[in-house]
Structure formats: C-alpha cells, structure tokens
Design a protein around this nucleic acid. Structure first.
Length: 482
DNA sequence: ATGTCC
C-alpha cells in the first residue's frame, strides 16, 4: 500500500477509503505522522486492518494507532466499533492476551537517595516474580478460587490483603468488570488460571523501575502523584494462559457457528457472531472473567513489588501508590457519537487504551475532571510516557489512544535466543539493569540488534492528533522480564 | 500473547 492510495484528512490522519477494497464496511483511519506512516503502510498490519474493517456491523471508522504492528487476525493497535445490536463481536479483534495492560505505581522516593539499591531491587524482583511463558505462581488456587478471582478482579486481592483501597479507586473500572461469567470459561483455561496468578509471562511483558524524568503538566502530575526525580514502578502484563485460552476457545466456537448466522468472516482468526447471540453473550462473560483475572494479576504483582521495596529499601513498600491501571486489550459496551448519532456500541480495543476525555462518566473519580490517564509504556527498557485523554479523542478515536511503542522487530521475529540476548545487552549498555529468565544462556550474539525506538514519534503523533496530552516522561532504570 | 508454529 502506498500514500497515493490514501486520503489525507489532516496532518496526523490518513484514510484508506471504504472503496479501496470490496467488502470494507468502514474506512480505515491511520493516526500517524510523516515519520511513521510509511513504515505502517509497508507492514503486514495495514492489510490486517483492511480485513478487520470488513467485520459485519462496524460503524464510524476503523482506528489504527501510530504504534500498530501485526497480530493474529486483527493487528495490534486498532479500535473497531460495532453497532449494537446489529453488529458482530470478534475475539480476534480483542486479542489472545485479554486485558494485557499496565499498572503504574508512583512514589515519593527520591531516585538519588536509592541509587545504590537498583541492582538489589532488580535481583529481588526477579526472584520474587515468576517470569516466562511457563511461569507458575507462588499462589496455587483451587478451581473454585479461580472463579472468585475471575468474578472479583483486583477486589479479590483486597480481600487477601494484597491491595490497598486506593489501588482500586485509581484503576480503570475499579479493577473489576461487572457481569463476568467464569462458568463460561473452559476447564482448560481454569486449570491454567489455577497456576498462573502472580506471574509475569513472556513476550513483551515486564516489570520496570523508572524515574520521573520530566513533567509537562504540573497540575495533572500532582493529582497523579508524579514528581520529577522520584521512583516509579510499571507492570506490563495480562491474563496469561487463562485469557489466551478463552480467546482460542471462542474463536474456534465462532468458526463453527458463524455460518448459522450467515456470516463469513474476513479471515478465520476474525471469526465473529452477532452481538445479540447466545454465543456472543457467553464470550462476553468469559472475556470479562479473563479481564478480571488480569486486573487481579497486576494487583498481585503490584503487591510483590511493594514487598520487594519493603525488603530492599527498609519498609518503603507503602510509599508506592497506584497512579492508574489500564487495559490495552478489551471489548466494552459504550455509548458513542457516530456520524452525528448517539449510539450504543461494542468497542473492540486491541493494543489500544480506553482514553475518555474530561468529564466522561466511567473515568475513575480522582481523574474524572482531568480526563482518563493514558499509560504509554515503551518497549521494555525504553522511555515511557504518561498522558491524559482529551475531549477530541471521544470522536476521533471513539475514546481511545495508543498503548505503547510499536515494535519494528516483534519478539516473534526476534525469536532467536541470540537476538533476545543482544536486545538485553543493548539495554545494559545504556546503564539499565536487565534481569531475564533467558539471559546469560548464550553470548553468541553478533550485537547490533536493536529495537528501533519509536515511542517518541508515537507520543508526538498522539499529542499532535489531540487524542491525549503529555503529562510526564519516565526513564527506565531496571527491567525484569521473561 | 501463548502448557509458543511448521
């Protein structure tokens, strides 16, 4: 695909018109600046976005975020809005990693007072937090308890003394989605859930210690508890095997029943059913259960981080306060203004954060007047950003913003051990402590493997497109990953 | 993303 195929809407918005391909239901709108657009057009994600725009019952436009990259079925970095009740729901447009997201903890701990402790912090985090695809948790749950976690989300952790009330107040949806139906989750998923709570997983999931490097919006930063020169912790992870299995189970089921509804999906991984079908209802219940599992997981990990801070920094764990907790892969029923009409919709966000503008109901109370916080982690070891959703986001992107830096080389492509090690080494060279379950196994790397750092371009684009505004930039000090 | 894909 080339620029000549696009209509330029404004400096940061490029449209693939509905007429581009037979079967597209809505245009695709790519949010990108001059620096990012050509890479996006060159990649596989663009074709995937066009296919995703063929899902039945979509309205408005398919939003492509500047940090988009290729995924299964739909790319990672899209928002697809389905009209209620005539539209369809597609698990592949939410993703296998249901409610992968970010928890950010701020603190009043000054970086310069604890510089000597970074190595110990990294070591202890690695010891305390099981990482990697096959990680099993320190918490073993009975099957009935898995259902309680899936029902209660982060509130489960509060009952188990692994959360503070304020953690829930400053979390999207209070860390719990209503109407979760653990009974609609398969036994296989449930057994995985029994073993994996409090684990980080693999891929791009990580825990980082960072410093608040620069504040751009003092008032907002004050409300968020972010101050220049202080230490923060960021947790990027999701629902592990539990959510992955839910997605896989329902894609399979939707593939089987799709033709009963006269639906031919654009691609088998985009199998879908009508929103008001019993299959859709089952999936929504199971997906919310997985989302709650992820909220609980990030809460347990936040608790582990506090424990490590208690140990290493002499009881400083309590000084870590939740800034916000946000999902990057979720589907939700929302009201939106589409082509001048206020309508009930089902919003698929895959690799996109909900970003409701100031005053919108549904934003956690401490932030309702400001707008929803948008947490933008870089790829592990990269600069991260905290932003704030703007009013404009409501119509331009159906209340959504980017989820983090796109990857020019996915960990899937970088699947060779040597590349993984080389990536870690390039971070170490920058003075960042890296602890990885796969590190140190090989130094056969040739070096020179690097993730292109495009997060600044992503953030400039999101700010330029007026989806969110900058609050603070965070600089990584230590990262633990699978 | 993942009891990891041929």
């Amino acid at each position: 695909m080339h620029r000549t195929d696009l209509t330029r809407i404004d400096d940061f918005t490029w449209e693939v018109p509905e007429s581009f391909r037979e079967g597209m239901r809505v245009p695709v709108r790519i949010i990108a600046n001059e620096e990012l657009i050509d890479d996006i057009l060159a990649g596989e994600a663009c074709e995937q976005a066009i296919q995703t725009a063929m899902l039945p019952g979509l309205v408005g436009h398919l939003v492509v975020m500047p940090d988009v990259y290729s995924g299964q079925g739909a790319p990672v970095g899209i928002v697809a809005v389905s009209k209620w009740p005539v539209g369809a729901i597609a698990p592949g447009a939410i993703g296998h990693d249901i409610n992968t997201g970010v928890r950010l903890l701020g603190s009043n701990i000054r970086v310069d007072q604890v510089e000597d402790a970074f190595d110990d912090l990294a070591d202890r985090l690695q010891e305390r937090i099981p990482c990697g695809v096959d990680a099993e948790g320190s918490i073993q749950l009975a099957k009935s308890e898995v259902d309680h976690v899936a029902q209660s989300g982060a509130q489960w952790a509060l009952r188990k003394d692994m959360a503070q009330q304020d953690d829930l107040v400053r979390a999207e949806e209070g860390g719990r989605l209503n109407e979760a139906e653990p009974s609609k989750v398969s036994d296989v998923a449930q057994s995985l859930g029994a073993q994996q709570l409090g684990t980080l997983g693999g891929g791009e999931h990580f825990i980082e210690i960072l410093a608040v490097e620069e504040v751009f919006n003092r008032a907002a930063a004050l409300t968020m508890g972010l101050k220049e020169g202080t230490l923060v912790a960021q947790i990027h992870c999701g629902s592990r095997g539990y959510g992955r299995q839910v997605c896989a189970d329902y894609i399979e089921r939707f593939q089987e029943v799709g033709h009963d509804y006269d639906i031919t999906p654009p691609n088998p991984n985009l199998a879908c059913v009508p929103l008001e079908s019993s299959e859709a209802e089952d999936y929504m219940g199971a997906m919310r259960a997985a989302a709650n599992y992820a909220y609980a997981n990030r809460q347990v990990l936040a608790h582990r981080v506090r424990e490590v801070f208690d140990d290493v920094l002499d009881g400083m764990g309590d000084r870590l306060k939740t800034v916000y907790d946000v999902a990057h892969n979720l589907g939700q029923i929302e009201m939106h203004q589409v082509e001048g009409k206020h309508m009930r919709c089902y919003v698929h966000r895959k690799g996109a954060a909900r970003a409701f503008g100031p005053g919108t109901p549904g934003i956690s109370l401490p932030y309702r007047a400001l707008g929803q916080p948008v947490l933008v982690p870089g790829s592990m070891g990269e600069t991260s950003w905290v932003m704030l959703a703007t009013r404009n986001a409501m119509q331009k992107s159906f209340g959504s913003a980017c989820h983090g830096a796109g990857r020019t080389m996915s960990r899937h492509e970088a699947n060779h051990q040597a590349d993984e090690v080389a990536l870690d080494e390039s971070l170490e060279e920058k003075g960042i402590r890296v602890r990885s379950s796969s590190s140190g196994e090989s130094s056969a790397s040739t070096g020179g493997v690097q993730l292109k750092e495009n997060i600044d371009a992503v953030v400039e684009t999101v700010a330029g497109a007026d989806l969110a505004s900058k609050v603070a930039r965070l600089k990584p000090l230590a990262v633990v990953h699978g």
